[in-house]
Amino acid sequence: MTTADDSGDGEVEPDNDLRNFGETVKACRKRAGLTQEQLAPLVSYSVQYIASVEQGRRHPSARFVERAEDVLDCFGVIRIAAKRLNRRRGLARWFRRWAELEETAVTLNTYECRSIPGLLQTEAYARAQIRDVPPLPTPEQAEARVVQRLERQALLRKTPFVALSFIIEQAVIERQTGGPEVTRELIDHLLECARLPNVDLQIMPLISPEHAGTDGPFRLLESEEHEWLGYTEGQQTGQVISDPKDTSLLHQRYAKLRIQALNPADSMGLLTRRRGSL
């Protein structure tokens, strides 16, 4: 998964979650009959800060949320809105829609050639990956990204089970992101995940003369309504694909990749051998 995010403490490009939170604060403020200038001294924040929050251009601090809730007496509405906002903090803005779709998916197929998919990462691997990708995040941003990545992994053990298939390039593991110790822990974790009854994990070997994934990584998802959607991602961009012709193309490629990759049993054998050689 991408390591970018929009969760800094300063102003950021507005997104729907931030806008919705800002509108909630604005509605509560108006209900209380206060202007931004009148609210500022009551919550001990500047007018500029309040305006930025209401415009959806700033992530509110936990302190602001609590002060605004107490002063405006909105029956917990601001706290509820903040919880929803914080569930998305740490996710890149272009990935948030796909993350929402994942939460209700019944099937999820992932081909990855850049890094271990976020759903399968260990905390140490995630931290090593995040710290190596410029621009370097603040400690708060890095923590938000790690927390989001680990929280998304609840999907692996969610009931009723989600059918999960992963095809990962061996080169991603051979890179040893974070060093040998992090890689050993990562392989142990991959083997553990591969034993889950709803997870198929396949490794694409280093030497693959026939390869259907040369156009890059992608994902396929089946919704509760049994609609299939795709997702592709590049530098600072992500696209949810809904056109049936395009999703059909991705299905064809994924089916071919499943044949070309090692089967699940052989994949676990390869991982076990690599673990022993580190």
Results as ranks from 00 to 15, higher is better:
248 S>F: 05
254 Y>G: 01
50 I>N: 07
51 A>E: 10
85 L>T: 10
10 G>T: 03
249 L>A: 14
203 I>Y: 09
26 K>T: 03
51 A>D: 10
12 V>G: 09
32 A>C: 04
126 A>Q: 07
277 S>I: 12
276 G>S: 12
66 E>R: 15
214 T>N: 09
250 L>R: 05
195 R>F: 00
239 Q>C: 10
76 G>T: 00
128 A>F: 02
7 S>F: 04
3 T>L: 12
47 V>C: 06
31 R>N: 13
191 L>Y: 02
61 S>D: 04
107 T>I: 11
266 D>W: 04
41 P>C: 03
230 G>D: 03
167 I>P: 00
5 D>L: 08
35 T>G: 06
101 L>Q: 11
176 Q>M: 11
123 E>D: 13
153 Q>G: 02
202 Q>H: 04
237 T>R: 13
95 F>I: 01
8 G>N: 06
206 L>S: 14
235 Q>W: 13
90 G>A: 09
273 R>D: 14
95 F>V: 10
157 R>K: 12
38 Q>I: 05
134 P>I: 00
33 G>Q: 08
245 K>M: 10
175 R>V: 05
97 R>A: 15
41 P>F: 07
205 P>D: 05
23 E>G: 12
58 R>G: 07
212 A>R: 11
55 Q>Y: 08
18 L>A: 03
187 I>H: 08
53 V>H: 03
216 G>I: 00
270 L>Y: 08
268 M>V: 01
198 N>G: 02
201 L>D: 03
59 H>K: 13
58 R>E: 06
96 R>K: 14
94 W>A: 07
186 L>F: 02
239 Q>F: 11
98 W>F: 15
167 I>W: 03
178 G>C: 06
108 L>I: 15
179 G>E: 07
